[in-house]
Design a protein around this nucleic acid. Structure first.
Length: 513
RNA sequence: GCCCCCAUCGUCUAGGGGACCAGGACGUGGCCCUUUCAAGGCCAAAACAGGAGUUCGAAUCUCCUUGGGGGCACCA
């Protein structure tokens, strides 16, 4: 028997908003309410995106709310990453930490008093109760249930004990109806029904005085006047609890839609940090938004990409702006089935966006990635060459592979054999390089047009195919069998450096021979 | 084990009873273009998970099976 005093329930009248009787449609207010316990996950970003799209479509308000009630897992660094990532994607919030708003504070740790107050209200009105079962008892219960291959959860030991606030360390649990059923209307799926007998008396307030998600999200959504909830699939199972909570409080429940989750490319479970190590068809699997940024994807491409997973623009269009998407965005059009991210499509889309950019703007975007790879960037050179790599790079970070030879004083040719083109040998290659050297040296105008004119004539004169002659010079000047167009490259490289490199290649080939 | 959700080409999807021997995109293969690599153009292979039912008619509606996913915490 419990040793602590029995708490007598009493009814109090609590001031509360009643919007039940208000027939006017609510203004659209939606929120992204992440728990910053790690870096922003791409699936979280998709949830945020859909909320944002919906808010913008309806000229509503998009709110960022930080759910930091799990003190053990929350980190400030994670919260910063969430904000940075959201900003990077262009998903700006109208209310939230840093921007404020009249429904704040927007960090749950700053609202604990409110949750306690409403938890007490539930107890006082017979909708919830204190439970002082120890963690050991609960663990034992679970173990026993596991042994018997049943899972009925908490046994409601304290449900009718009417424990008072002086019963030691306690949690507050919701008194779920034991019979009947609870139906939740999902905007995408329609009615979802649960037998109350299958539901549990979940914890609302933890023993540290902080609320669980269930209490906090209901109280906050109500007082922040959230009109529509769009959250991940995994919340379906607890949706009936939330519905009962709204009912107990006498509050109107926001309309709700459960977004499909993103699956792991491995085919096993949800996409998770564990998938980061893998790749698919040569494309690295990315999980956190910051990884997409680091890998050189453009935020516009990522947003476009994400919008088309779980929802489709229609008209067989793959490329569109957020503005175009928000015009058509409807909850009912969201595909309720979970799916994988088609990374190959992102690679393609990113290249499409890169090709659409103004070359100078692209050069500016590329610069930091080159510098991150240790290159000292000459902006004039970069801008001059950018138009020629624009259709070749899939990501910004790939630019280094294409351009390093322009920004390095010395290049190395791994294997001199690379200088020798198809159907050629050392001698013919040496002749070709020497003739190219003389031809290029004789040029007064080192523009790529003049180079090409002269070199084509040379090829013909020597009885070589353009690819043979140009290939040797390409390797000589760039150190690579694959490079941006040869003459444009040499123009940017400059006449002196180009000739020097051809000379070095000739020497290399002679020594090697 | 129990509860819930989901199911169209390899992948992302269009499709809301006849307009579908199922359309698009990525990827894949082939051809063209071409100084490499790309980009671009053309062409091709490729799917309604299975079974019952409703209906004159089903990818579309219902049920069952199977498969996948989620949940069953003092985490969100």
């Amino acid at each position: 028997m419990p040793t602590c005093s029995v708490h007598q329930p009493y009814a109090i009248s609590h001031p509360r908003r009643s919007i039940l009787s208000d027939p006017t449609p609510r203004p659209v207010r939606v929120r992204f309410a992440p728990s910053p316990t790690g870096y922003l996950h791409i699936g979280g970003a998709r949830t945020a995106l859909f909320n944002w799209l919906f808010a913008r479509k309806h000229k509503g308000v998009f709110i960022l709310r930080i759910e930091d009630t799990d003190q053990k897992r929350y980190t400030a660094e994670a919260e910063q990453d969430f904000k940075d990532s959201l900003h990077w994607l262009g998903l700006n919030w109208d209310e939230g930490p840093d921007v404020g708003g009249e429904f704040g504070p927007y960090r749950q740790s700053e609202r604990s008093e409110m949750y306690q107050q409403w938890a007490n209200w539930l107890i006082d009105n017979g909708y919830a109760y204190r439970c002082n079962c120890t963690a050991e008892r609960l663990a034992g219960l679970r173990k026993e249930q596991g042994k018997q291959k049943v899972r009925i959860g908490y046994d409601r030991h304290c449900r009718d004990l009417n424990l008072g606030p002086d019963c030691g360390e306690y949690v507050v649990r919701f008194k779920m109806p034991v019979d009947g059923e609870t139906t939740v209307y999902d905007e995408m799926r329609g009615n979802i029904s649960f037998q109350n007998a299958d539901l549990q008396d979940l914890v609302l307030l933890k023993s540290d005085g902080l609320p669980t998600y269930h209490l906090a999200n209901v109280v906050d959504d109500h007082f922040m006047e959230i009109s529509h909830i769009m959250r991940a699939d995994e919340w379906i199972a607890t949706a009936p609890l939330h519905a009962r909570l709204y009912q107990a409080f006498g509050w109107e429940m926001p309309k709700i839609a459960h977004l499909p989750v993103i699956l792991s490319p491995s085919g096993k479970g949800k996409l998770s940090k564990r998938d980061q190590a893998f790749e698919e068809g040569g494309t690295k699997i990315l999980v956190q938004v910051r990884e997409f940024r680091e890998a050189g994807y453009l935020p516009e491409a990522v947003v476009n990409f994400l919008t088309n997973v779980g929802w489709a623009f229609g008209d067989d269009r793959e490329e569109f702006t957020p503005e175009e998407a928000m015009e058509r965005f409807e909850l009912k059009d969201i595909n309720p089935s979970a799916g994988k991210l088609p990374f190959d499509k992102l690679v393609w889309l990113n290249n499409q966006y890169i090709m659409m950019m103004a070359p100078d703007a692209l050069a500016e975007k590329i610069k930091p990635y080159l510098e991150a790879d240790g290159l000292v960037v000459d902006m004039d050179k970069l801008k001059a060459i950018t138009p020629y790599i624009q259709e070749r790079i899939k990501t910004l970070s790939e630019a280094s592979e294409w351009l390093a030879f322009l920004f390095k004083a010395e290049i190395t040719i791994d294997d001199p054999v690379q200088l020798i083109q198809k159907n050629m040998d050392v001698d013919s290659t040496l002749r070709a390089l020497k003739a190219s050297y003389d031809t290029l040296k004789g040029l007064g105008d080192f523009s790529h047009e003049q180079q090409e004119k002269a070199m084509r004539a040379l090829a013909e004169q020597m009885g070589l195919k353009a690819g043979q002659l140009f290939g040797s010079v390409r390797v000589a000047t760039s150190g690579q069998p694959v490079s941006p167009p040869l003459f444009q490259s040499m123009e940017v490289l400059g006449k002196d450096v180009s000739l020097k490199r051809i000379e070095d290649a000739i020497k290399l080939l002679m020594i090697d021979d």
